[in-house]
């Protein structure tokens, strides 16, 4: 029996890599999409998720080499803590293009096949900051909040055709996106979290894989493994 195929963006590191590894462990053939090579993947394509045509090409390549893409996880991310008055237009656009644009590009590439087959699962990685907000997180929170609006609307639109769209909203996660001197790693901050530590990437991966494989009645849902940062 041939393997089921899943696309994971941001698969080269952090949360995306953990999701690729989890899906790989569960028997999926993973198309990894990232700026650099993605090691846990059956097929790694180096492309910027803001490049709609490039993402579409990657999906076509995967469909030829691996088979139809039955699940997609948008995990490619970009994070910066910047006070509002210092966010220039290029920083603003970059943030929106990576998070919302990346999800939209992936959706454009995989949705037609999913609708045709009458089944499929899309999971967007958003953020606890989209729900609770954060000091100097306005452009990041805007982008991740837009992702939630997109997910809820797309979920309502394509559920009747058998495609489920959901999101995972992690809290601060122990990945390379958080620099060693990040305030999210400071002991004073961690002590405010109910679990007292950062989220592990494998915990986010478990949520994403569970949404894809085990929760057929979840639609437009946001699962929040956030260490208790936003309850």
């Amino acid at each position: 029996m041939s393997q089921r195929v899943a696309l994971v963006s941001g698969a080269a590191s952090g949360i995306g890599r953990a999701i690729a590894a989890e899906l790989n462990d569960r028997g999926w053939a993973v198309l990894g999409v990232d700026l650099g090579p993605a090691p846990e993947c059956a097929l790694s394509v180096e492309v910027d998720v803001t490049d709609t045509a490039g993402v579409a090409r990657a999906v076509r390549q995967a469909e030829q080499q691996l088979g139809p893409v039955e699940a997609a996880v948008s995990a490619a991310g970009h994070y910066a803590i910047v006070p509002i008055s210092e966010i220039d237009p290029s920083a603003w656009l970059r943030m929106l293009r990576v998070h919302l644009g990346g999800l939209a590009a992936i959706t454009r590439a995989v949705l037609p096949g999913m609708v045709r087959r009458g089944s499929g699962s899309i999971v967007a990685i958003t953020s606890e900051l989209a729900i609770g907000g954060g000091d100097s997180d306005s452009h990041y929170a805007s982008a991740k909040g837009a992702v939630i609006g997109f997910v809820r609307s797309l979920a309502a639109e394509v559920a009747p055709q058998g495609v489920r769209v959901n999101a995972v909203a992690p809290g601060p996660t122990d990945t390379p996106l958080l620099a060693a001197d990040s305030p999210w790693r400071a002991p004073e901050y961690l002590s405010t979290l109910p679990i007292g530590r950062l989220v592990r990437p494998d915990e986010v991966a478990l949520c994403a894989a569970t949404l894809i494989e085990e929760l057929p009645f979840c639609v437009g849902e946001i699962i929040s493994p956030n260490a208790g940062a936003v309850i």
Partner: peptide
Amino acid sequence: EALVGQVVSVNGG
């Protein structure tokens, strides 16, 4: 453990 104090809605959307 990271998922805590949350409500997971299972309602078909």
